[in-house]
Design a protein around this nucleic acid. Structure first.
Lengths: 210, 210
DNA sequence: TCACGGTATCGTACTAAGTACGAAAGTGCT
DNA sequence: AGCACTTTCGTACTTAGTACGATACCGTGA
């Protein structure tokens, strides 16, 4: 049932996920859903947890940077597949089991890498902020892939006077509208910068450590 | 009118912002609103822009790090005051004038600090990801201030077995539940780390530059 | 003063969505 | 067959967005 809800939300947006549309998807009548859940909120909580369950767990066995990198890349992919999940996270405050398991695995990997409890808290807040924030930005872009950038951004830039927004216009014409531009490529830069800086922050680490 | 909508959303959540509740807030009847806006979506777009207008603009005159710091702190404060804005950003893809002005000022400050167009894009994506993501995490916390952490987190930890989530329990008991803990304090760590690393990334900068 | 064209407000009413309530319709076990 | 438990539904009430057309208000020029 939660799978069905995710499918509906993926296909037509979270706004189109109604008890009736979900019932239809499942080949059942609306009121039948209420045998399995108390209300719609429970479904929303549930699909957030489903989304978390799709994110690859980091392993305490692996090298922490590559594990964090894998987790981050996976999280970004998942949130790109389910963009509505980002907005939902803000309102749902009761984490499900998959969410808890995910957090536990991530914390464990960092602790295993030698981070103190406090530094782990710092690192985790930082990494998660970056991943979620990046996903949020990707979701709010008017275009969804490198292909459609030009056709969407061009008209916007054209009607936007260079006097009012000189730097926005500069960025658009000299960078965003250049062939080969893909906002997604920015992800790697920030992630590497953060991981490198975190490496340096481990006490006893050589400051010139890769 | 947009101010009224923001007030309603602040007071009782974005879910309680209905054409009827907004009309009541403004002392008019629901249908009167439709003279000023085409539909509710336009109101949602509008209040997102209002939120952006409340964020302090960085100035190209100032030192870029302190300007970015000021902007980030302001953005976080604003998003804490209007947590519903985070979820809205994901669905609204037509930026308003205040939003554009904000982006332009930020880009201008970075460009003025000597960042190339490309590096500016990198830095901006990174900084914004961090700020939005942090705000998103703050919004999804079950507690809203340092005072209520214990009373909310304690019961959660108690029912969460240490076998299933050992690291989560460790983090909770040894860090989060310690007196004086405030998730908001994490903000400074990540922001400084990012700003320092960005400083290093400027070509020609001494790697040991503060 | 009066008629007129915007500007702003409303009343009525239709549609979609969440869900309370209680009735069926299976299903397996004795 | 009879019973208990699980699962599905039909009906109907409530709330929310908004189409449509009717007013009411208000400054301007005749």
């Amino acid at each position: 049932m939660l799978r069905g809800a995710v499918a509906v939300a993926d296909a037509a947006g979270i706004g189109s996920l109604t008890m009736r549309s979900l019932a239809q998807e499942l080949g059942v009548k609306p009121m039948s859903l209420y045998y399995h859940v108390a209300n719609k909120d429970e479904i929303l909580d549930g699909i957030v947890d489903v989304v978390f369950s799709e994110i690859e767990l980091p392993s305490p066995e692996g090298e922490w940077r590559s594990e964090m990198r894998r987790r981050a890349a996976s999280a970004r992919r998942v949130l790109r597949r389910h963009p509505w999940a980002i907005g939902l996270m803000e309102s749902r405050t009761t984490p499900g089991p998959a969410t808890l398991r995910h957090h536990d695995a991530t914390l464990g990997t960092l602790r295993g890498a030698g981070f103190s409890v406090e530094l782990t808290a710092h690192a985790y807040a930082l990494l998660d902020s970056y991943v979620y924030g990046f996903a949020l930005q990707e979701a709010s872009l008017p275009f969804k892939g490198p292909e459609t950038v030009a056709e969407v951004a061009e008209p916007m830039v054209r009607q936007m006077s260079a006097e009012d927004y000189p730097h926005l216009v500069e960025m658009a014409t000299e960078h965003v509208l250049q062939p080969g531009y893909d906002f997604g490529d920015e992800f790697e830069f920030g992630l590497s910068l953060i991981l490198d800086a975190l490496t340096r922050s481990i006490p006893g680490n050589d400051p010139s450590a890769r």
